[in-house]
């Protein structure tokens, strides 16, 4: 496939529009040149790490991590420790493993059920959303078809209408279709990520040069085959980004399930944690802030794992796509 790439000298030194960027990219991408570059030490492409820059960027890091430190520290406390000790430091005794155990077994292990529900919603919802967004974004970027411009306008216009007010109409619709209180009520709306569509559109316009597609067509490749063998690898960094966003969005989806799902057996984690939180606000209810905090920490862990797992595709996708590492 790479053999059919047109080979030419690098493009102009200061490309400004999208066209210049695209053509120059198409020109450079062979795996051989990449391998050669990797050995170069400390060129502008492989600069030496800079301590001052790291320190300045470190400020952003403190900003994002300090609140999370609170979460980790407090996941080691029991209910009494939470009430008695300073928030940003550990209590006298640590209950971390005990908390995890109790979170997983509280109320007959309902947390595990919620976790499995969430996994289902994420796999079906975010997976589906990514597929739809990649296909749609690719179509918008590379094909000229009637109504193409309208798609952009309509999607943007629809996204601009606040979802909170659409919740009731959506509920009434879904209720008539018999979908409320079933996983479908969460999964179907999750399938749409307007932002994902735009991101893929922008990425596809940048990352998939029309020349490449035309070359493939001349080689006799069908549209689907072209998409899977040429476009998809080039779109990998964007796909991974959209997948990550959709996963987090589905993982943290709260408002829609709140309206659609009344049966705790179908709750996602967020609704479950919220139900635990509401317990503290109920006459006769049990305050379980310790379990909420530990549960939240457990909720974030899979997201981090997925992030670490997916991030290598930013690199490998690029290997196929002719860029730097």
């Amino acid at each position: 496939m790479t053999t059919s790439l047109p080979t030419a000298a690098p493009g102009s030194t200061e490309p400004v529009g999208r066209t210049a960027a695209a053509s120059s990219r198409a020109a450079s991408g062979t795996t051989t040149s990449k391998r050669r570059e990797r050995r170069l030490p400390h060129t502008p492409l492989h600069p030496r790490p800079s301590l001052p820059l790291t320190l300045v960027a470190g400020l952003v890091l403190v900003y994002t991590l300090l609140p999370l430190a609170w979460l980790v520290i407090n996941a080691t406390k029991d209910q009494n420790g939470l009430l008695d000790s300073f928030g940003l430091w550990f209590a006298d005794d640590t209950h971390f493993w005990d908390n995890i155990g109790r979170t997983l077994t509280y109320d007959d292990g309902v947390f595990v059920r919620w976790l499995l529900n969430t996994l289902l919603y994420v796999a079906a919802g975010a997976g589906g959303a990514t597929v739809l967004a990649v296909l749609g974004g690719y179509a918008l970027a590379t094909y000229d078809f009637p109504g193409r411009k309208a798609v952009f306008a309509v999607v943007l216009g629809a996204v601009a209408v606040p979802g909170t007010a659409l919740a009731v109409p959506t509920f009434l619709m879904f209720s008539n279709m018999g979908l409320t209180n079933t996983p479908w009520a969460v999964i179907i709306p999750s399938l749409i990520s307007p932002f994902g569509l735009y991101l893929m559109w922008v990425f596809a316009a940048e990352a998939v040069p029309t020349e490449l597609l035309e070359a493939a067509r001349i080689d006799g490749s069908g549209e689907l085959r072209t998409f899977f063998t040429i476009a998809l690898p080039l779109l990998m960094p964007g796909t991974v980004t959209v997948l990550l966003f959709s996963m987090v969005a589905t993982w943290n989806n709260y408002f829609l399930p709140l309206i659609m799902i009344k049966d705790p057996d179908w709750y996602p984690l967020t609704l479950g944690l919220n139900a635990w939180n509401a317990q503290a606000q109920t006459a006769g209810g049990q305050a379980v802030f310790d379990l909420i905090i530990t549960g939240s920490l457990l909720t974030i862990v899979p997201i981090v794992a997925v992030f670490l797992l997916l991030q290598r595709y930013w690199q490998s996708g690029l290997a196929a796509g002719s860029v730097k590492e």
Binding site: S175, K262, A275, A278
Partner: peptide, 19 residues
């Protein structure tokens, strides 16, 4: 849901005619 959350759900279900 607790309190007004549940009332909202109840009103919605009544409006929808099912659930």
């Amino acid at each position: 849901g607790t309190g007004d959350k549940q009332y909202t759900a109840l009103q919605n279900a009544i409006a929808a005619g099912s659930g």
